[in-house]
């Protein structure tokens, strides 16, 4: 179970107007702006739920994921994931979670994918039999057999994403965070990734939290949707709640953004 209560997180950034004179001025005096990435955010996610976390760019999606995965420390509020405080018991916490950053790779570029997996086995201290079992299962479900022997740099984006997802699941995490997992993938790979995530949730009861801009991902995967904008939770409901008006989901979401003025 994941609970976030009254969580806030803000950043200080320097700002400067364009122009040469302004640049010289900034040398001596600098204005700062406080950005409230998260402003009193609260929600609860039960075990085995699949939650789509949506909102425009800069709404606070990444900050939430990073707090839940122990990367960031919130300014205030309480966070509990299966009874652990992520940023306090980092090492214990991250053993139980898997994270996929869609835009970054965790595979070693120049060696066969399987070598990266072997290293992960050591990093997560996965016992031999369990590693073999996980590997076999993931290889079959994600169709990796052909890919494991090639270096990551030779794989297509779709092939690599399948390997990335497998890499994040080798240690059988109970919670999986997916940060834009289908970005830039072709249709076939997208479908394969979605099918696989659904399957993991069904067979292992993995809790899945997914951020994406692809509304088809949300339709296919999320039974519950949390909408965030300007650091606040604006809506927390099911897909049907959002689709009340019916019609195309992209348009509905765009309308929502406009209605809440968070574009």
């Amino acid at each position: 179970m994941i609970t976030m209560e009254h969580v806030c997180k803000s950043y200080k950034i320097a700002k400067r107007n364009a122009g040469f004179g302004e640049a010289v001025k900034a040398l001596f005096h600098r204005d700062y702006e406080i950005i409230h990435a998260l402003n009193d955010v609260s929600f609860t996610i039960r075990d085995g739920e699949m939650v789509g976390y949506i909102g425009p760019n800069g709404a606070g999606k990444s900050s939430t994921i990073k707090i839940l995965s122990g990367i960031l420390t919130p300014d205030c509020g309480t966070v509990l994931v299966d009874g652990r405080i992520p940023y306090k018991n980092r090492i214990k916490h991250v053993k139980e979670i898997g994270v996929v950053f869609g835009q970054r790779s965790q595979l070693w570029w120049d060696v066969p994918v399987i070598d990266s997996f072997e290293l992960l086995k050591d990093i997560y201290s996965i016992p031999d039999p369990r590693y073999q079992q996980s590997l076999e299962e993931l290889t079959e479900l994600l169709n990796l057999a052909e890919l494991l022997r090639s270096p990551a740099r030779q794989l297509s984006l779709g092939q690599r994403m399948r390997c990335e997802i497998a890499a994040s699941l080798l240690h059988r995490p109970r919670i999986l965070f997916l940060d834009e997992p289908t970005i830039g993938l072709d249709a076939v790979s997208k479908l394969a990734v979605r099918d696989f995530i659904l399957n993991q949730n069904k067979t292992h009861g993995t809790t899945v939290i997914l951020t994406t801009h692809d509304m088809q991902d949300i339709e296919a995967l999320a039974s519950r949707i949390i909408l965030i904008g300007k650091g606040r939770i604006l809506m927390d409901g099911t897909l049907d709640d959002i689709k009340k008006g019916g019609g195309n989901i992209d348009e509905t979401v765009a309308e929502l953004y406009r209605a809440y003025d968070i574009q």
Partner: peptide, 10 residues
Amino acid sequence: GEFDRVLVRP
């Protein structure tokens, strides 16, 4: 942000 990855490993 590569350090994020480091932090999500035990």
